[in-house]
Computed example of a mutant assay.
Amino acid sequence: MPILEDAKEYMQRATGLNRPGRKEATELARVRKPHAVRFKNDGLVPNHPRWPFIVYRGAVDLGEGHDPAAVMEHLFEANGWGDTWRDGVYDYVHYHSRIHEVLGIARGKGRVRFGGNKGRIFALKAGDVAVLPAGTGHQCLSAAADFLVVGAYPPTGTYDECTKVEEGPKALKAIPKVAIPRKDPVYGSDGPLLKLWKKPK
Protein backbone atom coordinates (compact mmCIF):
# COMPACT_ATOMS: atom_id res chain seq x y z
CA MET A 1 0.00 0.00 0.00
CA PRO A 2 2.75 2.59 0.76
CA ILE A 3 4.11 2.41 -2.82
CA LEU A 4 0.65 2.91 -4.30
CA GLU A 5 -0.10 5.76 -1.89
CA ASP A 6 3.27 7.38 -2.59
CA ALA A 7 2.54 7.31 -6.32
CA LYS A 8 -0.95 8.72 -5.72
CA GLU A 9 0.45 11.52 -3.55
CA TYR A 10 3.06 12.40 -6.19
CA MET A 11 0.40 12.64 -8.90
CA GLN A 12 -1.93 14.67 -6.69
CA ARG A 13 0.77 17.16 -5.75
CA ALA A 14 1.77 17.51 -9.38
CA THR A 15 -1.78 18.05 -10.64
CA GLY A 16 -3.71 19.30 -7.60
CA LEU A 17 -6.32 16.63 -8.31
CA ASN A 18 -8.48 15.73 -5.26
CA ARG A 19 -6.35 17.95 -3.00
CA PRO A 20 -8.10 20.65 -0.95
CA GLY A 21 -5.22 23.08 -0.49
CA ARG A 22 -4.01 24.25 2.90
CA LYS A 23 -6.59 26.97 3.50
CA GLU A 24 -9.54 24.73 2.72
CA ALA A 25 -8.00 21.89 4.77
CA THR A 26 -7.91 24.07 7.89
CA GLU A 27 -11.62 24.75 7.39
CA LEU A 28 -12.25 20.99 7.50
CA ALA A 29 -10.95 20.75 11.08
CA ARG A 30 -13.78 20.27 13.58
CA VAL A 31 -13.53 21.64 17.10
CA ARG A 32 -13.03 18.67 19.41
CA LYS A 33 -12.09 18.35 23.05
CA PRO A 34 -8.67 16.70 23.45
CA HIS A 35 -8.45 13.35 25.21
CA ALA A 36 -5.11 13.61 27.04
CA VAL A 37 -3.31 10.67 28.68
CA ARG A 38 0.01 10.56 30.52
CA PHE A 39 2.00 7.35 30.40
CA LYS A 40 4.74 6.24 32.78
CA ASN A 41 8.12 4.80 31.90
CA ASP A 42 7.56 1.04 31.60
CA GLY A 43 11.21 0.03 31.39
CA LEU A 44 11.25 -0.32 27.61
CA VAL A 45 9.32 2.79 26.60
CA PRO A 46 10.15 5.98 28.53
CA ASN A 47 7.16 8.03 27.28
CA HIS A 48 7.32 11.77 27.92
CA PRO A 49 8.05 12.88 31.51
CA ARG A 50 5.69 15.90 31.39
CA TRP A 51 3.51 16.12 28.31
CA PRO A 52 0.46 13.95 27.58
CA PHE A 53 -0.40 11.94 24.53
CA ILE A 54 -3.46 13.53 22.86
CA VAL A 55 -6.31 12.11 20.77
CA TYR A 56 -8.82 14.27 18.90
CA ARG A 57 -11.82 12.11 17.95
CA GLY A 58 -13.44 12.92 14.61
CA ALA A 59 -11.32 16.04 14.34
CA VAL A 60 -11.18 16.18 10.54
CA ASP A 61 -14.12 16.26 8.13
CA LEU A 62 -12.87 14.03 5.35
CA GLY A 63 -16.09 14.65 3.44
CA GLU A 64 -16.51 14.11 -0.28
CA GLY A 65 -14.51 15.24 -3.27
CA HIS A 66 -11.04 15.16 -1.74
CA ASP A 67 -8.59 12.36 -1.09
CA PRO A 68 -8.76 11.95 2.72
CA ALA A 69 -4.99 11.48 2.95
CA ALA A 70 -4.48 14.75 1.07
CA VAL A 71 -6.81 16.52 3.51
CA MET A 72 -4.68 15.33 6.44
CA GLU A 73 -1.44 16.27 4.67
CA HIS A 74 -2.57 19.80 3.87
CA LEU A 75 -4.00 20.33 7.34
CA PHE A 76 -0.78 19.28 9.06
CA GLU A 77 1.38 21.25 6.62
CA ALA A 78 -0.76 24.38 7.07
CA ASN A 79 0.09 24.18 10.77
CA GLY A 80 3.82 23.70 10.26
CA TRP A 81 3.99 19.89 10.58
CA GLY A 82 5.72 18.42 7.54
CA ASP A 83 7.69 15.45 6.17
CA THR A 84 4.35 13.72 5.72
CA TRP A 85 4.04 10.05 4.90
CA ARG A 86 1.21 7.60 4.12
CA ASP A 87 1.28 4.10 5.59
CA GLY A 88 0.07 2.20 8.64
CA VAL A 89 1.54 1.98 12.15
CA TYR A 90 4.32 -0.55 12.75
CA ASP A 91 3.23 -3.77 14.44
CA TYR A 92 6.05 -3.65 17.00
CA VAL A 93 6.57 -1.34 19.98
CA HIS A 94 8.68 1.69 19.11
CA TYR A 95 9.07 5.36 19.95
CA HIS A 96 10.90 8.47 18.78
CA SER A 97 13.20 10.13 21.31
CA ARG A 98 14.17 13.23 19.32
CA ILE A 99 10.94 14.34 17.64
CA HIS A 100 7.17 14.57 18.18
CA GLU A 101 4.75 12.91 15.74
CA VAL A 102 1.14 13.32 14.63
CA LEU A 103 -0.90 10.45 13.18
CA GLY A 104 -4.06 11.24 11.23
CA ILE A 105 -6.38 8.38 10.31
CA ALA A 106 -7.34 8.91 6.69
CA ARG A 107 -9.17 5.66 6.05
CA GLY A 108 -10.34 2.53 7.84
CA LYS A 109 -10.05 1.43 11.46
CA GLY A 110 -7.24 0.13 13.63
CA ARG A 111 -6.42 -0.79 17.21
CA VAL A 112 -3.22 0.93 18.32
CA ARG A 113 -1.58 0.66 21.72
CA PHE A 114 0.09 3.83 22.93
CA GLY A 115 2.43 4.12 25.91
CA GLY A 116 4.21 0.78 25.52
CA ASN A 117 3.22 -2.70 26.69
CA LYS A 118 1.61 -1.23 29.83
CA GLY A 119 -0.09 1.59 27.93
CA ARG A 120 -3.65 1.87 26.58
CA ILE A 121 -5.32 0.54 23.47
CA PHE A 122 -7.23 3.01 21.31
CA ALA A 123 -9.64 2.07 18.54
CA LEU A 124 -8.95 4.69 15.89
CA LYS A 125 -11.03 5.43 12.81
CA ALA A 126 -11.06 7.82 9.87
CA GLY A 127 -11.06 11.45 11.01
CA ASP A 128 -9.27 10.78 14.31
CA VAL A 129 -5.90 12.40 15.04
CA ALA A 130 -3.32 11.32 17.64
CA VAL A 131 -0.47 13.59 18.75
CA LEU A 132 2.53 11.87 20.32
CA PRO A 133 5.09 13.79 22.34
CA ALA A 134 8.63 12.46 21.95
CA GLY A 135 9.09 9.18 23.81
CA THR A 136 5.53 7.89 23.37
CA GLY A 137 5.41 4.19 22.57
CA HIS A 138 3.10 3.05 19.79
CA GLN A 139 2.24 -0.27 18.14
CA CYS A 140 -0.57 -1.39 15.82
CA LEU A 141 -2.31 -4.48 17.23
CA SER A 142 -4.84 -4.97 14.42
CA ALA A 143 -6.21 -3.03 11.49
CA ALA A 144 -8.70 -3.23 8.64
CA ALA A 145 -7.24 -3.90 5.20
CA ASP A 146 -7.89 -0.30 4.15
CA PHE A 147 -6.37 1.30 7.29
CA LEU A 148 -4.36 4.33 6.16
CA VAL A 149 -2.45 6.74 8.38
CA VAL A 150 -0.87 10.07 7.49
CA GLY A 151 2.05 10.96 9.72
CA ALA A 152 3.92 14.27 10.08
CA TYR A 153 6.49 16.01 12.28
CA PRO A 154 7.12 19.53 13.55
CA PRO A 155 10.05 21.41 11.96
CA THR A 156 12.31 21.03 15.00
CA GLY A 157 13.65 17.63 15.97
CA THR A 158 15.32 14.70 14.26
CA TYR A 159 13.64 11.43 13.33
CA ASP A 160 14.85 8.32 15.12
CA GLU A 161 13.29 4.98 15.99
CA CYS A 162 13.92 3.29 19.32
CA THR A 163 12.95 -0.31 20.12
CA LYS A 164 15.47 -1.61 22.67
CA VAL A 165 15.92 -1.29 26.43
CA GLU A 166 19.57 -0.33 25.88
CA GLU A 167 18.46 2.84 24.09
CA GLY A 168 16.63 4.06 27.20
CA PRO A 169 19.37 6.05 28.99
CA LYS A 170 20.21 8.07 25.88
CA ALA A 171 16.51 8.56 25.08
CA LEU A 172 15.77 9.81 28.60
CA LYS A 173 18.26 12.62 28.05
CA ALA A 174 17.00 13.48 24.55
CA ILE A 175 13.22 13.48 25.12
CA PRO A 176 12.94 16.53 27.43
CA LYS A 177 15.09 18.56 25.03
CA VAL A 178 12.66 18.29 22.11
CA ALA A 179 11.13 21.74 21.66
CA ILE A 180 7.44 22.54 22.00
CA PRO A 181 5.87 22.88 18.53
CA ARG A 182 4.75 26.38 17.57
CA LYS A 183 1.34 25.11 16.46
CA ASP A 184 -1.13 22.36 17.17
CA PRO A 185 -1.11 20.12 14.03
CA VAL A 186 -4.92 20.29 13.76
CA TYR A 187 -5.94 23.63 15.28
CA GLY A 188 -2.91 25.85 14.76
CA SER A 189 -1.78 28.65 17.08
CA ASP A 190 -4.85 28.46 19.33
CA GLY A 191 -4.95 24.68 19.64
CA PRO A 192 -5.22 22.75 22.92
CA LEU A 193 -1.79 21.21 22.46
CA LEU A 194 -0.10 24.50 23.34
CA LYS A 195 -1.98 24.59 26.65
CA LEU A 196 -1.33 20.94 27.47
CA TRP A 197 2.36 20.98 26.54
CA LYS A 198 4.10 23.66 28.57
CA LYS A 199 7.68 24.43 29.47
CA PRO A 200 8.65 23.48 33.03
CA LYS A 201 8.66 26.40 35.45
Score class of each variant (00 low, 15 high):
Val129Met: 03
Pro154Lys: 07
Gly115Phe: 07
Val178Ala: 04
Phe122Gly: 04
Pro169Thr: 14
Ala130Cys: 07
Ser142Cys: 07
Lys183Pro: 00
Gly151His: 10
Asp184Ala: 03
Gly110Ile: 06
Pro185Ala: 04
Val129Cys: 07
Val186Pro: 00
Leu141Val: 06
Ala130Ile: 03
Gly116Asn: 09
Ile180Trp: 00
Gly115Arg: 06
Pro154Arg: 09
Pro176Ala: 08
Arg113Asp: 08
Asp184Gly: 01
Gly127Tyr: 02
Val129Ser: 02
Asp128Met: 04
Ala143Pro: 00
Lys177Trp: 05
Gly137Asp: 06
Cys162Asn: 14
Arg182Lys: 11
Ala143Val: 03
Val112Trp: 04
Arg120Thr: 07
Pro155Asp: 13
Val150Gly: 07
Arg111Gly: 06
Phe114Arg: 04
Lys109Ile: 10
Lys183Leu: 08
Ala134Cys: 03
His138Met: 12
Gly137Phe: 04
Pro181Cys: 04
Glu166Ser: 15
Ile180Met: 03
Phe147Glu: 06
Leu124Phe: 04
Lys118Leu: 14
Gly110Arg: 04
Arg182Pro: 00
Val149Cys: 12
Asp160Tyr: 08
Leu148Asn: 04
Pro154Val: 08
Glu161Gly: 13
Lys173Ser: 14
Tyr153Gln: 13
Thr158Tyr: 09
Phe122Glu: 14
Arg111Leu: 14
Lys173Ala: 15
Ala134Phe: 01
Val178His: 05
Ala174Trp: 10
Gly135Phe: 03
Gly135Val: 01
Phe147Ser: 05
Arg182Ala: 12
Gly168Phe: 10
Ala174Thr: 10
Ala123His: 12
Gly135Ile: 01
Leu124Trp: 02
Lys109His: 12
Leu124Lys: 02
Thr158Phe: 11
Arg113Leu: 04
Tyr159Gln: 12
Pro154Phe: 09
